[in-house]
Amino acid sequence: MSQAEGSYYVPHDSRWPVFGIPGMTLLAAGFSVYLNGGDWGVPMMVLGAVITIIMTVMWFRDVVNESVAGKYNAQVDISFRQGMAWFIFSEVMFFGVFFGALFYARVFSIPWLSGGDPATSQYLWDSVVLSWPTAGPGMLDLQYQAMGAWALPTINTLILLTSGVTLTWAHHAIKENHRQKVIIGLGLTVALGLMFSSIQAYEYFYAWDELNLRMDTGIYGSLFYMLTGFHGVHVIIGALTLFVILLRVIKGHFTADDHFGFEAAAWYWHFVDVVWLGLFVFVYLI
């Protein structure tokens, strides 16, 4: 509900979108050209990426400045919260697609291909029997191993769970206005995030080289890389955001009762955390 003082902050103009959108277009077009085997793809992408990054940085800089200048009242704050919450909801749906694909493959397509749909398996796939994980009935000669759950992924699970704890710790500290503790908590969280990403990178190399588990090793490889890959990207973005928040904490941008930037980043991080738990259970464990 609106505040009686009626001073909802409406920025007068916003230059960054029109500046940055050609960059995003260039990025997309460049990637397309690259995928089509054109020569100009990579330079276009680089240029596009640079412009997009400048847009993002400058835009956030503006917002931070306005926030620090105290232009945002409580109602604006609620808008931001709503915005972030719904954005995370959209991300949930995005991950939902890939989880859905995982369930679909395991519950429907794989069983159908291997006997559940007798005609299909008999006439098209020589009645092969498939068991998860599988590369599919047409790639039986591919040798690869599935990624076990117990070594690296478990360590990573612990890391992420710990990072959730350190972040919550930092959150409590910020509410108590205990800046030193916030910095330590956030610093630890970012460090754990980086650790997670490094271990995942190692896991990828290991899977690729040692297990021969690749994106083109059928549906299991496809889902494995798609799910963990998008999650990994989110971890990196989340860690980056937390790092920026850390810098802002150091600069003293936040107070005990006004620290939405911090909270937004924290929500995001927890969301990434929860997704990982889903991954751990459905991709690695069962």
Partner: peptide
């Protein structure tokens, strides 16, 4: 998400929509 899977099926060898690889 759906079109992303199309993209990876086309260029990165995934098999989401290819029965030979266990997709559909």
């Amino acid at each position: 998400g759906a079109v992303t899977m199309l993209l990876t099926d086309q260029y990165f060898g995934t098999s989401f929509f290819d029965a030979a690889g266990g997709g559909d």
